[in-house]
Design a protein around this nucleic acid. Structure first.
Lengths: 204, 204
DNA sequence: AAAATATTTTATCAAACGATAAAAAATAGT
DNA sequence: ACTATTTTTTATCGTTTGATAAAATATTTT
């Protein structure tokens, strides 16, 4: 029987999750230390462990919080619109995610580069199913002659690659351009270019 | 006065660099341990430290080895060819790198996600200069009306994003498709799709 | 083969790390 | 205001980690 979470608990757990997201984003699960996370949250290490019993437990909480938001954009895939509308909408959603959850995107990237020990099962089931549905839609467009013949899965990868790149490599992008997605003009230009090229590349 | 490296030294240092590349690729600088690297190289920890005095020293060696190969593809940028030839050639080079140096690509990705503490200076100088040269070429194409109006830097990011994605997220891609770039057909299809979309997106 | 040098192993260290126990302080319920 | 509960702090533990010293082994040079 789970007691109702107190006000302090809710505040502190979220504060810890935010700090943990930042630290795991930078150093991955193994490279991150709970000292660092506690420090960033303005808390002592044992106090952190009062809210999350182990390092793995807080990592799982971070992954879950981020994953839900990540999958959301895939689920919102519109099957009713035209190819153009659908792709634009999807790229928009992905860019929004990269801007609003850049650290979460990097947590994912780290998890996958470590071999996705935690997410492997989930990627092989839920994500695989979602991707299957979406590639079928794209395949339908090709068959119906609505877009140029294209391998659907690689189009998906391409959209993920471009949108996530701005979150995962923001340090490099900032060094080269002085800007990040937080800059409104830069955000619009990045999105515009991506949409322009991808749409131009698949539409007839 | 540096003594000539012995036969054993050359063999073992390369064996260690290869092992270190794999481990740093998975766990980043902080997450990797020299025990792990030594194990993977079939060597004891103190023996590793005989060849590389510190963890940072072997990390720097790995970064340098990979960086040279990474920059190579940028330097080979053809200024004499048509836009079509130049882009195809560049994407080819990048895909080759992702296939032949996937682990190295991930070492980079980790370094950048950690905030690029080591590479920051280099990215701000050498890379910035190279990117500047290449974006100027693209800008010239636009001005001359050879390609559609496009923001050059975002085209560069797009090419990096797509090509590196296949190396950095190979675990995810393998889970979803069962294939990696080592599969010849998969490699060709990935490259073909990327070239088709990007060229189609920028050519008139 | 003997001597000199290079490489590997064994033993060990101090600091950092994840985690626990128990006391102290703060908050909530009556 | 008093009591019960929750939250925070202090102290500490066993491992892991990066690194060093010194002995043992292997290789090269003469």
């Amino acid at each position: 029987m789970q007691k109702k979470r107190s006000r302090i608990q809710i505040i502190n757990q979220q504060k810890l999750l935010d700090a943990a997201t930042e630290v795991f984003a930078s150093y991955g699960f193994r490279g991150a230390t709970i000292d660092q996370i506690a420090d960033m949250a303005g808390m002592s290490k044992p106090n952190l462990l009062y809210y999350f019993k182990t390092k793995k437990e807080i990592y799982l909480a971070v992954l879950e919080q981020t994953l839900n938001k990540w999958l959301q954009s895939l689920q919102d895939w519109m099957v009713t619109g035209t190819p153009e509308e659908t792709i634009i909408n999807y790229i928009n959603k992905k860019f929004e995610f990269s801007r609003d959850h850049a650290a979460g995107s990097r947590v994912f990237a780290n998890e996958i580069m470590e071999g996705a020990p935690i997410l492997k099962n989930l990627l092989g089931e839920d994500l695989k199913r979602l991707v299957g549905e979406n590639t079928r839609v794209i395949k339908g467009w090709v068959t119906a002659g609505q877009i140029r013949p294209i391998e659907p899965i690689h189009l998906m990868f391409m959209i993920w690659a471009v949108t996530q790149h701005y979150a995962d490599f923001s340090a490099q992008i900032e060094t080269l351009t002085g800007k990040t997605l937080d800059d409104e003009d830069f955000y619009k230009q990045a999105k515009k270019t991506a949409i322009q090229i991808i749409l131009g590349g698949i539409l007839k």
